[in-house]
Amino acid sequence: MHRFANPARFLRLSAVIQPWAAGATVVLLVVGLYLSLFGSPPDYQQGDTVRIMYVHVPAAWMALFVYVNMAIAAAVGLVWKHPLADLFSKAAAPVGAGFTAVCLVTGSLWGAPMWGTWWVWDARLTSMLILFFLYLGYMALVNAFDDPERGVKAGNVLLLVGVVNIPIIKFSVDWWNTLHQPASVIRMGGPTIAGEMLVPLLVMAFAFTAYFVSVVLLRLKSEILARKIQTLRLNDAQGR
């Protein structure tokens, strides 16, 4: 693992991977969009609104996937003091927060015609909202220090505390939700998935993953450059 700790080596590797990831994103997005907008039938109950699912559900998967990855990177950063792992969480957080926001808003846009309301305090929606706050809290903490190193380290501790808490929050929200059933009769959960709907869903999920990889590689490069600039400026200040 420490073979990739050297920023120069990482940059060379990332320069090789990045174009492939970007290309895969474009191809998968084109195919995925075609399948989800033209190539799949409307649901027999939900009609064409089911097409919202093809962005909503992959965004939800990405929101969780990115957070788990950040938490793993935080653990690696804390235990082995791996410098790239530290930078990874910082680089990935805005992307994860973006996917969470997409998931929340598209869910709301899906709920409006189907449930007749923009928001219900359903267990899944509520947990997603809390996850969004965890992302925002992490980003605020990382950027709140004059010394970026310290911000990243504090963020790592917060990520680990958050990842311990996510199952607890999920469980408590599920429990709370079954106790306070909403009065209106609302059919929860998506439609039972037919094969012709599963394919566009998976293609879109892979497209989002490829997008995440290519953007995070760019952001990591940007973070590495920021560190370099900082070192140069420090040296300049000391040299004078």
Binding site: P42, I52, V55
Partner: peptide, 23 residues
């Protein structure tokens, strides 16, 4: 979109906006 255009297109537009904006 079978009468649901007002919900479906904003969903896709927002997704595109967030992804392009981040990039």
């Amino acid at each position: 979109m079978g009468g649901y255009a007002a919900y479906i297109w904003p969903s896709y537009a927002l997704t595109a906006l967030v992804m392009v904006g981040l990039l």
